[in-house]
Design a protein around this nucleic acid. Structure first.
Length: 216
DNA sequence: GCATTAAGTGGCC
DNA sequence: GGCCACTTAATGC
């Protein structure tokens, strides 16, 4: 039985074809805070997230970090080099929570994407979604305050991984640390902390034990 | 247990 | 909002 059930990318392929793809790469477990790859290094693999959370980020000399994107179940990264030979990683990647990945060697990935037209389509759709995500975040950073940005982000993941409650609120587990969140939104951790409190006081969000959140 | 890391708070710019 | 200092809480060895 194929292990790709959890992700949509290969749903159009037969069981046998999926096994073929599995043989092209390897499954691997990572634990939180492991470094996956560094920006500028030679691109050796592409990655499919089966379960967990990975962040890709840029970092300056002072150690300031900016998270470009989070990748969770079913996501694929990085997004460069498929059309060209021998790329480099456009950002660094680190494991946020314990994660299972499917590692696909770059050469195999090129072959695969070239030979399965559906994958091209799915890739285009996926890139479109990610691009929209980035634009939304960018305009929010210009026009919204810290709490609004935080709320928008929380609503996003709540939609993705949360469970709707009978009263209409959504319950979910915050997969990353507040620090990671601050790096993503681009604000100081203290500001995120305060924004969180404002949202709680406004009754929009409720903090539950073990980083579980109720969003109303 | 102690040491390190993360979260929360207040002051000051 | 950022940065700094500090306290408290959680986590790791």
């Amino acid at each position: 039985m194929s292990r790709f059930k959890a992700i949509g990318w290969f749903a159009d392929l037969s069981e046998k074809e999926q096994m073929e793809v599995e043989k092209m790469g390897v499954f691997r477990d990572y634990s939180a805070r492991e470094l996956l790859f560094l920006q500028g290094k030679r691109l050796s693999h592409y990655y499919f997230v089966l379960d967990g959370l990975v962040s890709t980020y840029h970092q300056n000399e002072q150690g300031k970090k900016w998270v470009a994107s989070f990748f969770s179940n079913g996501d694929f990264f990085p997004h460069v080099g498929l059309a060209t030979e021998g790329g480099i990683y456009p950002a660094s990647a680190e494991i946020v929570t314990d994660t299972t990945l499917f590692l696909l060697p770059a050469a195999q990935a090129q072959k695969l994407f070239a030979s399965v037209p559906q994958l091209q389509t799915q890739l285009t759709q996926f890139l479109f979604k990610k691009s929209q995500e980035l634009m939304t975040r960018f305009s929010a950073s210009l026009f919204d305050g810290a709490s609004e940005q935080l709320l928008a982000f929380l609503q996003n993941i709540a939609m993705k991984i949360g469970q709707q409650q009978t009263d209409g609120s959504i319950l979910f587990h915050l997969p990353m640390k507040e620090r990671d969140l601050a790096d993503y939104i681009g604000l100081a951790p203290e500001t995120i902390s305060r924004a969180f409190r404002q949202l709680c006081e406004a009754g929009l969000v409720e903090k539950l034990p073990e980083k579980n959140l109720l969003i109303k």
